[in-house]
Nucleic acid binder design. Structure first.
Lengths: 343, 343
DNA sequence: GGCGCGCATGCAAGCGCTTGCAGCCCTATC
DNA sequence: GATAGGGCTGCAAGCGCTTGCATGCGCGCC
């Protein structure tokens, strides 16, 4: 592989010192307009690109952000990742992906301090479950860190208020007149943040009890956060009698699973069964799904911007950062059919 | 930020030179077992991690692979990305993500030679459409490059044989006895490889003509590769009379859109309409979808391994690399209902 | 007309690591 | 008991860039 053109080549070709080239290229002051222009032109002509290793070594900055994700195929992670990358790309930062894998076989490699450090200026972690050792390593990394998606004790966190979101979803069903409300609950998946399904379930229970209702255990059916698993869970739940008139699913993918299940059972949504989810997943609109929307892309972007600000010297904002979530009413929720008779 | 521990710290603490530390840590020969053990222990104790900038500068290797993707939220890209990352992670390589975005607003930033070079040892690009200038930049990058997913003239490519896959899918429908076969065709999306939808459609046409059938223009309905768009396209197609008895969708997501559309129209799948897709998407099983499966994860892994081999000095394998695809029969295809009567 | 100041530029010392080369010691060989 | 050879180790020169400091120039000011 031929030697790439270095700053010396540019310096020689434009008849100035490397120091001047460096300053000119980075837009630093104290470079005459004429010189700057010459340098820029020669650099362009020579196809010069700064070596990130060399400049990283000299400055101590890598201009790269580590992003730790459990996987990249689920909507939330993929979308947050895109938000992060977009924000970083704007300012010339690179995204270094650390895909832990759901099965977690790579966790140790990432966390055994071998990777996160020295290659990134900051780290954004998505909604993972961390062991105390991992948490400590993240915290002691010596550079800004934030978790997006699910609260992790001891680490700064950015995301929706899971409890409030779940309450709002359930409350919407209650407000429509439903009294028999089931819940497709998330299960704690290995490696993923356990708090998210827990809080969503707790929010459901709180909303019910606030309305003087109580959760019937047989109307709470757990499954993973996937469409297929939720479909099966919903089939189990809906085959039981009596059947709830509405279902709060812990995520849109689960809600879609519920809709599929309902169709298979010949139940009309929303006449015979209302369904609400959380997320505003890409497919939510296709299914006409009523949901509590969260802006995953925006969360990613915000997290990245926070990190960049801190790297630029801004004082760290501590504590939990809650981003808003809003109800989007579509076609899967309606007053219970029975209600018309009751009234 | 406190200075991180450097190789000098380890050297001093273990009473040897930095050269020896470097050799010991990297498992190089000519280090006595005793010394190596001491060094390893002190390094561990001090929490030493090599600075990728410094070692990158010294060796000319960054130990990072650039991965250029159009987006990360579609199944194929996400899955290939996971395959790549898994293969890289195994050998300590990092994945640097370049998310172009479908709208392509960041393309220039990536391609204006400012990013790809000097930070990565090799580049894997996913199924994108490149301008001639971009192709040239990729080719002249001076390090190994490969495209996964769709053939790009002038660049090495790895993926299924699109034409053959589409023929196989269509041929399966023909073999079942279908004579009226429609096609949910992909449209060339901005920034994405146009050849993929084109070849899939061409394969469909070839399969038909091989069987003495001809494609009826009104049975070919184009849409994007998403569930929602395909659903609408399928609704349009299926509302027309006469209606085909089978549909070959250019991807599983499109096939799922078709299934949703059929259900909405009250058509029984597969009795009144057979549907076949391509991919074996994560949702294919949930929908009982018959499909031609391609191993996206494996393609990513293979691409990464090829790049790693070449970086290790192996001679580059040139030419197109076709990976296998296999028919998976599930529940959305069956002989046409009319056939029983005909026979 | 001399002095001081500020701007543009260059010099050179790192940043932390790798690696060719040289040196040392210890063992095997004759 | 020399000698050669090999295994360990250290020295030091970079890798390509950034940046504090010094230099030199031209200008405005008194």
């Amino acid at each position: 592989m031929a030697r790439l053109t270095s700053i010396d080549d540019v310096a020689r070709a434009s008849g100035v010192s490397t120091a001047t080239v460096s300053r000119a290229l980075r837009g630093l002051p104290n470079v005459s307009p004429a010189t700057r222009e010459t340098v820029l032109a020669t650099a362009e002509q020579l196809g010069y690109v700064v070596s990130s290793s060399a400049s990283g070594l000299a400055t101590g900055r890598t201009l790269a952000m580590g992003v730790v994700v459990p996987n990249v195929s689920r909507w939330f992670y993929a979308t947050v990742l895109e938000g992060i990358d977009a924000a970083l790309r704007r300012v010339g930062y690179d995204t270094i992906l650390f895909n832990l894998g759901l099965k977690g076989e790579d966790r140790e490699r990432v966390f055994h301090r071998s990777i996160l450090r020295k290659r990134t200026d900051a780290v954004i972690a998505l909604c993972l479950d961390f062991t105390p050792a991992e948490r400590e390593q993240l915290a002691s990394l010596g550079h800004p860190t934030i978790v997006v998606g699910g609260p992790v004790p001891g680490l700064r966190h950015l995301g929706v208020d899971e409890l409030a979101v779940a309450r709002a979803a359930t409350a919407h069903l209650i407000a429509l007149g439903h009294r028999q409300i089931g819940h497709l609950a998330g299960i704690p998946e290995p490696g993923l943040n356990k708090r998210v399904p827990q809080r969503r379930r707790r929010g459901y229970e709180l909303a019910l009890s606030s309305a003087g209702l109580s959760a019937r255990p047989e109307w709470i059916e757990p499954s993973d956060f996937q469409i297929s698993g939720a479909r099966e869970a919903a089939l189990r739940l809906l085959r039981r009698e009596p059947r709830p008139t509405a279902l709060f699913a812990a995520s849109d993918e689960m809600a879609i699973g519920a809709i599929l299940a309902a169709r298979e059972l010949g139940l009309d949504v929303p006449r015979e069964l209302s369904v609400i989810g959380i997320d505003n997943h890409a497919l939510a609109e296709t299914f006409g799904l009523t949901t509590i929307a969260q802006d995953a892309f925006g969360q990613g972007r915000l997290a990245a911007e926070l990190m960049l600000e801190e790297l630029a010297g801004a004082p760290p904002r501590v504590g939990q950062l809650h981003v808003p979530a809003t109800l989007i009413e579509r076609a899967t929720t309606a007053p219970p059919a029975s209600r018309a008779q009751v009234e």
